[in-house]
Amino acid sequence: MRILIVDDNASMRKVLAALFSSLGHQVVAALPDGSAVESTVQQTAPDLVCLDYHLPGRDGLSILRAIQTMAPEIDVVFMTASSEAGIEGKAADAGASGFIRKPFGQEQIIAELKAVEETRKLEKASAQRAASGGAARKGRRGTAVIADDNGSVRLVLKALLEESGLQVVQMVSNGNEAVVAAKAHQPGLLCLDVNMPVMGGIDALPLIKEASPQTAVVMVTGEADKTMVAQAAGLGAVGYILKPLRPAYVEGFIRRLFG
């Protein structure tokens, strides 16, 4: 993969660059702050960005959102030593493909890269099948709608659902659109992000169940706190999928749900 490193610690940039190079990846640039991230992304076209949270001038979350807006196909591994409550969930909801807490060992970053690579392969295969008019690899299990305000999450989740044998008939970005899509398609599955603009997943859930009672609604979230899980279950959700999305986790969930 082509990798861009953004970290204000010179030693960390050097260590990561050496590690990635030893694994056969190409480090296209290493930046000490977020001031030139967008221009560097445009110039170097990385596959993955290793992004620190606390940076001079701009924090990593704002940079992550900017990257996802301009190029949702780029994976971002979010790195931080912060003990801030909920930061992992915030990064996942913003579209991070992976999360690493500092200090970390080489095994952790290697495992995270492998997970991202595995997901990228499935996403690429799904896009190629769609371009050629091909069907999902496995036996069809029905139709699905995806509701998430993050473009990269929608793309990854579409690939994982199709790999599991579901036909994704529509992808939307807020709860209002999810209700309309549920009524129009009556899908077997609807993946519903918890945090979305206009209308969030919890507010949309009862309206979706009213519009399409037979649809199995699965919440998608970066942080599954007990209150949210209980509330969603009480409103009719059949479970939840955690971000960052991982193929084995999603496939296992779909297998348990549909048999």
Rank of each mutant, 00 (worst) to 15 (best):
E223K: 12
G175R: 06
P72R: 01
E112A: 12
I63T: 00
K158I: 00
R246A: 11
V217S: 00
V28A: 01
G34V: 01
R58I: 08
A29E: 01
V220T: 10
L48Q: 04
T69A: 14
Q231I: 09
Q68F: 15
Q214R: 15
Q231S: 12
V229Y: 15
Q68T: 15
L19G: 08
G200H: 13
S21K: 07
R255K: 11
D8S: 12
K183E: 12
K138E: 14
N150T: 07
L51G: 03
G201N: 01
V15N: 04
S62A: 13
A181R: 11
L113G: 03
F253G: 01
G252Y: 08
R101C: 07
A204T: 03
K158M: 06
R101E: 02
S126T: 06
R246Q: 09
G95I: 04
V145K: 08
V238S: 07
A144W: 08
K121D: 09
D7S: 05
M70D: 03
L16V: 01
G200F: 15
G151W: 10
A96W: 14
K226M: 08
S126Q: 04
E88W: 12
V28R: 01
S22I: 05
R137Q: 12
L31P: 15
F104V: 05
I241H: 09
V77C: 09
D33R: 03
V172T: 04
P244E: 02
Q214W: 15
D148R: 09
L157V: 04
G175S: 12
I110C: 11
Q128K: 15
A130T: 00
K243D: 01
H54Y: 13
F104D: 00
G98N: 00
L55T: 05
R2V: 07
K124I: 11
P56R: 04
V37M: 05
L166R: 07
Q108V: 14
V37I: 06
A45L: 14
A125I: 04
E84I: 10
H54E: 02
L207H: 07
L19Y: 14
L207R: 05
I241M: 05
T40C: 09
V27I: 03
T119R: 08
A184R: 13
G175K: 10
L235M: 09
L64A: 01
V37L: 07
I5Y: 11
L113P: 12
V194S: 03
N195C: 09
E38S: 15
F78E: 05
C50H: 03
V6E: 05
V180F: 15
V15S: 01
P197G: 06
G139P: 14
T221A: 02
R137E: 10
V15C: 00
A127Y: 14
V250K: 02
P32N: 00
I74E: 04
I110V: 13
Y249C: 12
P56Q: 00
R154A: 10
I100K: 10
A131L: 14
E88R: 10
